[in-house]
């Protein structure tokens, strides 16, 4: 087992339980031990519009908590992953800023050094664990299913920072779905934003973006959407009904976390994947899955 500190962020541990439950059920089957640490806070990225120094301080603070244990970090949220990655870069290139941030952290007895490596679920699965190891564990292939993937903007942009997947042609989720037995065709809107960051300011427009992408996925006949971001899941799954109303369409797209799909293919029991918490019609996929020669 390889140990990683789990940095949960805000959204996953306070409402997107399906992501956390399915991650905790599947990653250990692939040799990953998730270590829970006390004391984390928001990464600061959702507050960047208010104060960028706050983002820098909060991110460095969370990194420092993990460094104390000498662990590399698994960051399931693309937005947190961006904040922590950017903070590492800024503080590496600007020693004065590093000093200034450390003087803030001293009050809580923390020191930021910059020693931990950062992973998201996708690059951990694809690049560290590897497709062969995933394939070995598949007992119920997701045959006859074709998923539209949605990564979350912050997982592939800005590439200058070094992101876990390619910025113009991400394929890691596609490759993983393929070894699970499913298909994942490309589609024109693949790189488009879910609209989530606009929710606090312009809810209507935000949901229009969400609805438009779902509508297009539905029209193209995909079996569902596979994703790896708690914010996007909130928009596409939790708010799918509202998004449908906003764009005047009846939406029926099963939306699942990639880790839930991995669990299904590994034969993990459904309640250990928290599939009851997906509000979109995921039965369509579950039935399809059972119907397959497994």
């Amino acid at each position: 087992m390889t140990k990683y500190a789990l940095y949960p962020g805000c959204l996953m541990p306070t409402e997107q339980y399906g992501y956390e439950v399915s991650m905790r059920s599947t990653l250990p089957l692939l040799g990953v031990e998730l270590v829970d640490l006390e004391g984390f806070s928001c990464c600061g990225e959702p507050l960047k519009s208010i104060n960028q120094m706050l983002t820098l301080t909060l991110s460095a603070r969370n990194l420092a908590i993990c460094e104390k244990e000498g662990l590399d970090i698994l960051i399931p949220c693309p937005m947190c992953h961006l904040a922590l990655s950017e903070t590492k870069k800024i503080l590496r290139e600007d020693p004065k800023m590093k000093e200034r941030i450390n003087s803030k952290l001293a009050g809580e007895g923390l020191v930021y050094k910059g020693t931990s490596k950062l992973f998201h679920v996708i690059d951990l699965l694809h690049d560290v664990i590897g497709l062969d190891a995933i394939k070995e564990k598949v007992v119920k292939p997701l045959s006859d299913l074709n998923f539209a993937t949605h990564y979350g903007c912050h997982l592939f942009r800005p590439s200058e920072l070094g992101r876990p997947v390619d910025s113009e042609n991400p394929q890691k989720m596609e490759n993983i779905l393929e070894v699970l037995g499913a298909k994942a065709d490309d589609y024109a809107e693949k790189l488009d934003c879910c609209g989530g960051p606009l929710l606090p300011v312009h809810p209507e427009t935000s949901l229009t973006k969400t609805g438009q992408k779902l509508q297009s996925i539905q029209e193209q006949g995909f079996s569902g959407m596979a994703l790896s971001c708690p914010w996007c899941h909130k928009m596409y799954d939790s708010k799918q009904k509202k998004a449908g109303e906003t764009v005047g369409a009846k939406l029926n797209v099963p939306v699942l976390y990639l880790t839930q799909l991995i669990g299904l293919a590994f034969g993990v029991e459904e309640d250990k994947l928290a599939l009851d918490l997906n509000l979109s019609p995921v039965e369509k996929v579950l039935e399809g899955d059972q119907g397959v020669g497994s």
Binding site: L11, P13, Y17, F40, S41, C42, N278
Partner: peptide, 30 residues
């Protein structure tokens, strides 16, 4: 320390679940 506090969430069957009922350990906070 977090942008929102721990929520009770709806299930597809129209019920609700807490973080604990979902089988998750306590949430990390400052």
């Amino acid at each position: 320390g977090l942008i929102q506090d721990i929520q009770t969430v709806p299930t597809r069957a129209g019920e609700t679940k807490t973080r604990e009922q979902a089988g998750l350990p306590p949430c990390s906070k400052p």
